[in-house]
Design a protein around this nucleic acid. Structure first.
Lengths: 228, 228
DNA sequence: ATCTTTGGTGATCGGTCGATAAACTGGTTC
DNA sequence: GAACCAGTTTATCGACCGATCACCAAAGAT
């Protein structure tokens, strides 16, 4: 039936972009999509967000998995700054101030709905990049914080942080991190003033670290045992 | 072709269970599956874990979503104990000991790969039951801890915990929680001795809370401002 | 004005998913 | 031993997913 004049279908209007622009647009919107729906989010939904058709994705990425890797790269590496290590180690300023300033900047960088969700999703997948990030936090941030705390308490700073010290720093760090999770993932009511939360947490941490440092020798020989 | 004698296909051997047993087996294995692969895990993979066929699921649950809800119920409500509140409030014993004992028991209950992964997955979905759980932690655990800490520091215990106090307790609690995440989700190297980690974290928290309590009046009138 | 390049679309394929209907079978009851 | 019930399987449906291919049209080059 009707074999003549192939019905001239109205084509969807094209909005042509340069290859680079389109590619980065894919990554940007994919980050949003995957943050919202997890990495199970469909390529068609992604294309809809760009106002293009789904096959176009495959002109820029060989597979969905490659797109996902690109999203990781952008999310994990994006907010990273090189100045953090120097900021933490600048002994011309009080440790308390350095820590407050660092955590202010660090949380400004990662406390977004997008970053936290992508981070948690990738953590649940057990990806290498997640392990790399955790290692980076340990080496570049926590180890340095411990060294500075030791120096501040008049202890030796040569030896590497003990496992117990590292754990202490991790609990502190994790506590602050979890504030972001409660706020931007659970969307639970939290103390609005992030700066005050950091400040209070720092007070507790520093006061506690000092007290531990005082009897650090005793602790190493006979670790505190608690009735269980 | 071959219209005669409907080929007597060899049927998969049945292992018949009582309705209750089969149902709870579905929930158990579903918990494992969803913990591993998220709630996107397929019903066919689930059936394979039970050694049955996929449609059997729908004799016990109207939909996959109902199965998921059952998994939530079991996971969230399972490890909950009623004794925790009394344990925390028993002033005949030192606060330090009570807290150590409580967090020992609490982390024994929730620090499993299964529990933590289901919890995080459901948190990312923004489910009501997750909100309920967070509220429960706040009301039943953290508020009570604050009250006991106040009592221990010789402060009034009538007024409800301030937002700042709650936040302090949350950061402490979240720090301990994050230990479980690092250990069982990131599978990162952590301090093996969980009891020591709790003990150290408690030392820091209690020492810090004491110090804050000392100038609590000052803090309320003129909250500590930090150079940013 | 035409050619070439390249960003973009339409159609479609094989696979997987949740869900349904109907047939089959082991065990219990009368 | 016939009838029935409950647990299980086979077969299949419609929707969706990632991926591929041939084709199309807008911009730059000649």
């Amino acid at each position: 039936m009707n074999r003549k004049a192939p019905v001239k279908r109205t084509r969807a209007k094209q909005t042509r972009l340069s290859a680079d622009d389109r590619r980065s647009e894919f990554v940007t919107k994919a980050t949003e999509l995957f943050a919202d729906e997890g990495f199970g989010g469909g390529t068609r939904a992604l294309a809809r967000k760009l106002g293009v058709t789904q096959p176009l994705l495959y002109r820029y990425f060989p597979s969905k998995d490659d797109l996902i890797k690109e999203v990781y790269r952008k999310v994990y590496l994006g907010p990273l700054e090189t100045g953090w290590e120097k900021l933490l180690s600048d002994r011309s300023r009080p440790l308390r101030v350095r820590l407050q300033e660092f955590y202010q900047a660090y949380t400004d960088a990662i406390f977004t709905r997008k970053w936290l969700r992508i981070y948690l999703y990738s953590g649940l997948k057990g990806l290498d990049i997640n392990r790399w990030y955790v290692g980076m936090v340990k080496d570049k941030i926590l180890s340095r914080i411990i060294r500075e705390c030791r120096h501040d308490a008049g202890l030796a700073t040569q030896s590497r942080p003990s496992a117990a010290e590292l754990e202490l720093a991790w609990v502190f760090h994790g506590g602050i991190f979890y504030y972001g999770v409660r706020r931007y993932i659970y969307e639970a009511p939290v103390l609005e003033d992030k700066a005050q939360m950091i400040s209070d947490a720092l007070d507790v941490f520093l006061a506690g670290f000092e007290r531990l440092a005082e009897n650090s020798d005793d602790r190493q020989r006979a670790p505190l045992k608690v009735v269980v």
